[in-house]
Write a protein that binds this DNA or RNA. Structure first.
Lengths: 190, 190
DNA sequence: TTTGAAAATGAATCATCATTCATTTTAGGA
DNA sequence: TCCTAAAATGAATGATGATTCATTTTCAAA
């Protein structure tokens, strides 16, 4: 809402996407936003809080979407996965920096015990695993540990998106989604 | 070769795997190895060089293996992928810390322009992409950008391995490999 | 033993930023 | 125009942790 806060988040996203959280300097972010270092501290108590705000925002959207998908009992597992891919690609397209940031910080932030992020990320993993486990009662192969499938899915999707993240705007969204669905559902073989 | 250097690398791997490179303190590594901080600097000029040594070692093994696989003209694409998965799983099993470290630092170090790592990682990506591109002339689906498939493969495999990395020793290697092959080649569907 | 080169030590130094806060600027109401 | 509360500033501070190096220890050859 606050215009200044929005500017800070925008600049921080650029810097985090470029160099990762740990190498990002508050002074860079301030420069980028055209404001003084101290100003950032009027809006965020610590550096980590900026990343937290960014991640909370996008993970919340994903969680929201996941909940909608999982509760739609009309959908088969395959359709749920497709729907989910669609949502994630849209998110990434709308915000190409996010895919890069999440990839950068994936391990760090999924291991992290940030009191706001942790439950959100756990929730997302649980929801995703549920979709996969439920699908295994029907059309998904059931000879693999659902946790492992979930991890494979997450890793594959994020790296796939990172590959496109720099030119996601210019690329045909439909093609990108279809390709990802094929890889996830049917694999590399013809 | 050098015993002391080996000890440092071993301790560093433990610490890096636990907390990631950025949060790892030289003093932790020294404590873990039961030596003084200064001693580490007799063997490595900077902290980064320790990680470099670790990553060079394991990526070199992967590159080596990739070259062997790619040059084996008897193998079809599918078999090359299977062989490659086998090598990677073996590596990870033999050294569970490595899988965790690489996952931690994946984005950071693949973007990084460390003069020794960069060419090695580029080479690995090129080799892998070649296997996939060549396979597309035959049994692999050819309707997806090979670069995107390569990224998907890398992301999927690493996250899959990370899922198991804590108990890879106790788990049936054969099962893990077969499952990963299925996910990569045939996808989630039955 | 003695000796000195090599190895190891860890307290002191140095560099890097995140964070603070005394001071300045801005902007809107009187 | 003047005044003041809110907003912004950025130099100074503080914390962290990598790196150095003067000193000590080890150990093998003489």
């Amino acid at each position: 809402m606050d215009k200044r806060e929005e500017e800070i988040i925008k600049s921080a996203m650029e810097v985090f996407a470029e160099v990762g959280f740990h190498k990002a300097k508050i002074s860079h972010i301030a420069d980028r936003a055209g404001i003084a270092v101290g100003t950032i501290y009027l809006y965020f108590k610590k550096k980590e809080d900026i990343l937290e705000a960014i991640l909370m925002r996008s993970w919340s959207i994903v969680e929201e979407a996941l909940k909608l998908v999982i509760n739609d009992t009309d959908l088969k597992g395959t359709e749920k996965i497709k729907e989910l891919i669609s949502i994630i690609v849209n998110q990434a397209k709308q915000n190409r920096l996010m895919a890069q940031i999440i990839l950068h910080e994936f391990k760090y932030w999924s291991d992290n015990d940030n009191p706001r992020l942790k439950p959100l990320i756990t929730s997302i993993q649980t929801l995703l695993r549920r979709i996969i486990s439920e699908g295994m009662e029907n059309e998904f192969r059931s000879d693999i540990d659902p946790g492992a499938v979930t991890s494979f899915f997450i890793g594959g999707v994020w790296h796939y998106l990172a590959y496109y993240s720099n030119n996601l705007e210019t690329i045909n969204e439909y093609t990108v989604k279809r390709a990802l669905e094929k890889l996830v559902l049917q694999g590399m073989l013809k």
